[in-house]
Write a protein that binds this DNA or RNA. Structure first.
Lengths: 241, 241
DNA sequence: GCGAGTTTGTTCTCGCGGTCACAAACTCCG
DNA sequence: CGGAGTTTGTGACCGCGAGAACAAACTCGC
């Protein structure tokens, strides 16, 4: 999924705290963190793997195995301490401090992202909005002034930004990505429907709305076909002569 | 990933056109379709698996294997006809005709989605925007009037909608999903940061912005740790007495 | 018509990831 | 203090998916 390539071929043992968490587990840790936050808001101090798994929508065995990659933070016969486990996961992900983020492309989607409270509340701080269009310059979105795209390198250097969000049209996406990489950004969240080429060491994650819909459409088609032609006779070469 | 459960345990042979496409392949078909569309716009009539794979950002062997699940639509020694293959993929996905879609939750994100041209241009047609808030009623977004959430069932029935998009706050997401399912929707694209419980036969796909960012943050942390403490001494119990 | 070159479709192998099942470890109660 | 009950952590197994490699099939030039 991501275009990683900085693989430390450092096969250490299994459960020492700071090595080698499988990608699939990494993708689920934020889900667990959110479920734990939700439990904490309801003043629940402790929970079992079964409860947490239900809240996160996964299998309890999978959850326990995932957590075991971080270390042994539970107590057998008891469960997990919500606050303690939350902190451990946050530390592992690296969101105990905020990450500065810039958003390039302040169209409809970019504005929505800038206003999205989920960013700021979960370890991220939008430090700048950039857009190439003349008419966007100087406008204020979500309390931030929109700045020219040319300021990218300067801002990245000044604010120590390492994560960038691309919400420009597909045709401009690769250019923006190149500029981001040149400016020193090494993680990109791409909303443009385009394939990005980036050098090794740079991570790209893609969010593509129409692809998601098309996947749903595929399953819908199948459901519809199944409902109609439920006869399902393999009538392809069964014709009697 | 998706919460499917309508599995026809009908293990038919391999390459007959209409059975059993792996989920991983289904997720890539839209990418291929987009790459083909891009080629067609540049008046390229035919391409090899290598070219198409590059355009789609995947391995050529993987691409060929994916396409082989649909049937043999290429010509050895020549490659694939762009238009023909496009149509075959579109037919397989089920986007040869448009799917009506409703969007519930017309906040910042919902408005961005309503205005997103990629939906309409790729096999989907937004037929209604719904929001529960009083002050949204009657407003026009992307050429559509915002209608009350209570009209959901009526609209779904009238327009034969089977795909719904949820862009409401997390606390409301489950209620919206329940209402959608009750109204007859069987595929949901969920932008709310919440785990949805749906009955068997209903597909849910989740797009979660802050989770994507957190995954990037994890890798960034690792890169930073690698850059700093490249010494990597396991100084945990090595303290001399 | 035939051989050389090209490109697809498929087979094989390997590793990751999901699930089951169980031993280890803790609490509670008498 | 000991046994029953509970819950974590992990070993074993299995299936999907990725990639390499190769045979089949087509085109082109002579």
């Amino acid at each position: 999924m991501t275009a990683r390539s900085t693989n430390t071929g450092e096969g250490s043992s299994a459960q020492d705290p700071h090595r080698d968490i499988p990608e699939a587990t990494v993708a689920r840790l934020p889900v667990y963190l959110r479920a734990l936050t939700s439990l904490a808001e309801r003043n629940i101090a402790s929970c079992s793997s079964e409860e947490l798994a239900t809240a996160a929508g996964v299998n309890s065995a999978k959850l326990r195995k995932d957590l075991s990659y971080l270390g042994s933070y539970g107590t057998r016969g008891v469960g997990y301490d919500v606050d303690y486990l939350s902190y451990q996961i946050a530390r592992e992900i690296g969101v105990t401090h905020d990450w500065p983020v810039i958003i390039v492309g302040i169209g409809n989607l970019g504005q929505a992202l800038a206003n999205f409270s989920g960013f700021s509340s979960r370890g991220f701080r939008t430090v700048a909005l950039l857009d190439a269009a003349e008419q966007m310059q100087g406008r204020t979105v979500a309390g931030l002034e929109v700045r020219p795209f040319a300021d990218l390198a300067e801002i990245v250097a000044a604010e120590q930004v390492s994560i960038g969000v691309i919400s420009v049209p597909a045709t401009a996406a690769q250019d923006v990505a190149d500029a981001m990489v040149a400016a020193g950004i090494s993680s990109i969240l791409n909303f443009a429907p385009a394939v990005l080429n980036v050098p090794p060491g740079v991570d790209v994650r893609k969010v593509d709305l129409s692809i998601e819909l098309q996947i749903l459409a595929y399953h819908e088609s199948r459901k519809a076909a199944e409902a109609n032609g439920a006869v399902d006779n393999g009538s392809e070469e069964g014709m009697p002569a």
